[in-house]
Design a protein around this nucleic acid. Structure first.
Lengths: 177, 177
DNA sequence: TATTTCATGTAAGCCGTTACATGATTCT
DNA sequence: AGAATCATGTAACGGCTTACATGAAATA
């Protein structure tokens, strides 16, 4: 049981869903790939923390819908009260910017542009999803009780991080000019 | 040559320094440990991207001061223009909060408190260092040309991230109450 | 026609974490 | 007295990344 295993339990507890569904959601706030997720789901299934229903589909591989079990839910609650490890952050862009004073102006600005573009992509990608969530649940109170509330607050964080990232890029650019 | 190898080159290019110095600086914005850094420095030395001067000390192990070579600097510049990979972010707290709607109010609030405390620690730890930097270089113009400028902007980012993290925790708490 | 999306899986190899190892000094 | 700081290193194990593997439908 590594961190992501618990994360899978966490998301499955909000709603039965497939590995593919989980992947798409995780990608927004946890760096991972399908090759990590599928084996972990098998392990969770074997440990009986989740159960599996196969949904047959035409033209596509069968969809495996996972649901959390009571045993799994107990495991999830145990984990909640264990102190969380520190956030692991590894951003190559930061490494590059750590020697910004030895670079010429052109290179420095190019790096800042690259970084801003990255934030901008995140912003356009996720603020749409966020807007859709806001409009589907009429009020914020509805959202609060919906199965998507966790996703809603996490996406909000990602979007606000992107926004402040862009502001930071501009602040640095101002300092340099 | 992995990402951190280039990061080491990057920081060394701003100022000759030891593995231990590098570790302390990296820790602020890149998750790593000394067991990763020391072997990489050996490799960089063998590849002649850096050179090493031993500073003898009494009572402590000798300090190895690394300096970037011309060859290393060329390598560094090459890397700058290669597109940076996506930021790798793995925050266990986010995994926990992804199922916040299935938790009772007490647990949810406890998680938010834990998260805020973590941000608060970062804030108090790094805003001090940042303040020291600001006061040592009299004006921001001095800082811009100092060997610490890269560190200055990265620390600023870390501090502003912590601040917006705290705001986010409060925003979620308000939604829940 | 080529790429992306949907949908799952396996496997090799690299990388990083954790633990072991040492040891003097300074702070609590 | 015990923990933290300074200062470097090695090694095993586990986990993650990358690539391989398949394949239909939809989009560009």
């Amino acid at each position: 049981m590594n961190k992501l295993s618990f994360g899978l339990l966490s998301l499955i507890s909000t709603k039965p869903q497939s590995g593919y569904d989980l992947l798409l959601k995780f990608k927004r706030f946890w760096h991972t790939t399908h090759s990590t997720i599928y084996p972990l789901l098998s392990q969770l299934l074997e440990a009986e923390y989740i159960s599996c229903d196969v949904m047959e589909q035409s033209g596509k591989p069968d969809k495996k819908i996972y649901t959390i079990t009571e045993k799994g839910f107990d495991k999830l609650v145990d984990w909640m009260y264990k102190p969380a490890g520190p956030a692991v952050i590894k951003d190559e862009m930061m490494l590059k910017l750590s020697c910004i004073q030895v670079l010429d102006q052109k290179t420095a600005n190019w790096l800042l542009d690259e970084m801003e573009t990255r934030y901008q992509k995140q912003l356009s990608e996720y603020s749409e999803t966020l807007a859709r969530m806001k409009s589907s649940g009429t009020s914020e109170k509805d959202l609060r009780e919906s199965e998507d509330f966790g996703m809603y607050i996490l996406l909000s964080k990602v979007v606000s991080d992107a926004k402040s990232g862009i502001e930071w890029c501009n602040w640095v650019r101002d300092l340099l000019s």
